[in-house]
Design a protein around this nucleic acid. Sequence first.
DNA 1: CGTATAGTTGACCTAATTCAAAAGACGTGG
DNA 2: CCACGTCTTTTGAATTAGGTCAACTATACG
Lengths: 228, 228
Amino acid sequence: MKSDSAPQLLSKLNWSSAIIRRYHDRQNIFLEGDKKAWIYRVEAGTVCLYKMLANGRQQIFGFPIRNEIIGLEAGDEYQLSALSMGITRLRCLPVTLLDREARTDADFALHLYEAISSELEATRELLITLGQHGSTERMAVFLLNLAGRNRGGKTQLLNLPMTRFDIADFLGMTIETVSRALARLGEMKLIVVRGRSKIQVKDIDGLQQLAGLPEQHIEAVGTPDRTS
Amino acid sequence: MKSDSAPQLLSKLNWSSAIIRRYHDRQNIFLEGDKKAWIYRVEAGTVCLYKMLANGRQQIFGFPIRNEIIGLEAGDEYQLSALSMGITRLRCLPVTLLDREARTDADFALHLYEAISSELEATRELLITLGQHGSTERMAVFLLNLAGRNRGGKTQLLNLPMTRFDIADFLGMTIETVSRALARLGEMKLIVVRGRSKIQVKDIDGLQQLAGLPEQHIEAVGTPDRTS
DNA sequence: CGTATAGTTGACCTAATTCAAAAGACGTGG
DNA sequence: CCACGTCTTTTGAATTAGGTCAACTATACG
């Protein structure tokens, strides 16, 4: 559901020369409207991409993790804010470098085009999830997305570095509903909630089924086992 | 809210040589998954961009009108379906032409990048609208969006070539709720509903205010931590 | 430990969906 | 131009999912 656009870019860009920056929990990486100076690749940890809203809430657009790129968008300002969720390590590349490459190398510029395109596609998926599914299903989608990108076994222990508040803002609901949705998934024996930041996935197929029944819009991001 | 990215592209592309294609009401222009052969610029009428969903409904992502570009995305398949709303005229450009240009001209490729970027931004706005606003507000946003892109006077007569069903699928609600939302806006003296496809905007400022005031994104000054 | 913060659970309320039916728009043929 | 039938839209009543408010519990941290 989030930017899986890294692979192509990695090849072209000289990331090895990039600086590594370390964040602890809930540090701002950049804010919407900041002048864009760097693009980042997540090396470890999780990032939260969001926009602040007038009502004090925020709309979260994703939680990029290891190997995903953030800050990649046209314009000279960031269009989203980024926050570290837990201890996080980022590799930073000056945009100037990216810009120079893009201006001279059409092929590279096209990679940018593709990367943003897939980001757009991901955002559309999110929009569909929010618009069309109930709270329990949305939670299932969220967990599957995490599980998929974490690339684990069948019985995964998911790490949730984000708070219930963040999850609520991501899925467009309240923390209470998040809590109840998790409880319901628990009752259904699909997951076990372990403390505030660990969730054991017991029945990934069940989740999958809940999340979208028909294959349609839940592409198994990374998960090798797709039963249907 | 939709792709207003045309201007830059227009300058580079040789649209004058492009074929014109005519559609009447509710004809498919292309379908999600179709091999991408053309990109289009709307000359007249309205297009509906959507994805079919498993439950028989559809998520609509926008209603591009005159001068807006459709079919512009990376990949060799369309990621959305497009349907004409009312009599519609499109100028068609073979993607091969666009591709050739993009592969050789880095500057042009960057324009594509920017175009998609603004599309992404628009989709994010839509997501926020759907996620955070009530039905009446959403309707206000929709009407303002139409009014804004139609560029008219203060007391506009809006043409709605799409059905209530389409509006419902765009705003993530039911036709009944669409109807009630319009009725409510009527009671508030903000609009007058004239038949099934015309709406007279009486108080655009009132709509704007309802919609959440144009500036709904507060930049986070300081810590975005909600609680502390 | 004890306090603060995060999360859960319960009771109630509201907005939107659902189901049902009436009213209005539109096209057709007389 | 009117009468008719179909389809779209509106309106109403009942239902429900999720939000809100409030109390309670669990967890992290000093």
